[in-house]
Design a protein around this nucleic acid. Structure first.
Lengths: 110, 110
DNA sequence: GCAATACTTAGCTATATGACTAACCAACTT
DNA sequence: AAGTTGGTTAGTCATATAGCTAAGTATTGC
């Protein structure tokens, strides 16, 4: 039961990887360009990129010795959809939830 | 630089924890109720709950020997906002991206 | 008050993750 | 053709994560 969302959320849980996404959102870039602002060894950084590629969030093509990376929309849209869906459900019950929570808290006071 | 988003996405990367969120979206529940559908030891399950509470996604109150859990909207809304923001940026450049990607692929053909 | 219920704490194990160095290959550049 | 640049592979290490059992605490029900 290893969902698409598992790997997606796992990939997004790292600040380096989110930074790469943020950078790529404004256009494609080479591995070195992406690596430059991060003070970590290149192989380490490459593994972050690999995680993003394996998850399908990033794609890349190699021309000569330069690998150019770009973003792939689908997984992010799917995740956003899941969050929106959850939100819809709980927001439709929010009043009831709040009331219950307050009730519990009130009753709890000792 | 351990962001709120780090822990949030980390928390959501586990199917058990997402299942708990899905369950809680339709109303509060006790620890045992939440645990029931999951075939894992209770302490193991409790640690998942702890992750959700530490991240601020779930809150709980204990009344007597029963702990009742409910969802906290803010972190999920924040994450959804981040995704929406990213999406906005890259969608505004999507045509350009596609064109570039195609160009690279074409030029690459050997 | 004794037993069952509902967690809670403590402590162990295995695998996954994130970081490093060192050495390597494959294009360009000169 | 020799050096430099851009990326890759291989291998090590430390910490984090997810699972377990066993035993403990605190309510509630009888």
């Amino acid at each position: 039961m290893t969902n698409q969302l598992d790997t997606f959320f796992g990939a997004m849980s790292d600040p380096t990887r989110r930074a790469v996404i943020e950078r790529l959102a404004s256009g494609p870039a080479s591995v070195s360009e992406l690596h430059a602002p991060h003070s970590m060894a290149l192989p380490t950084f490459m593994r972050h990129l690999k995680v993003l590629e394996d998850t399908g969030i990033v794609r890349s093509v190699k021309k000569g010795r330069v690998r150019t990376c770009h973003i792939e929309a689908a997984p992010l849209i799917e995740a956003q959809g899941w969050l929106a869906w959850q939100r819809e459900i709980w927001e439709s019950r929010l009043d009831r939830l709040d009331a219950l929570a307050r009730h519990i808290v009130e009753t709890e006071k000792e």
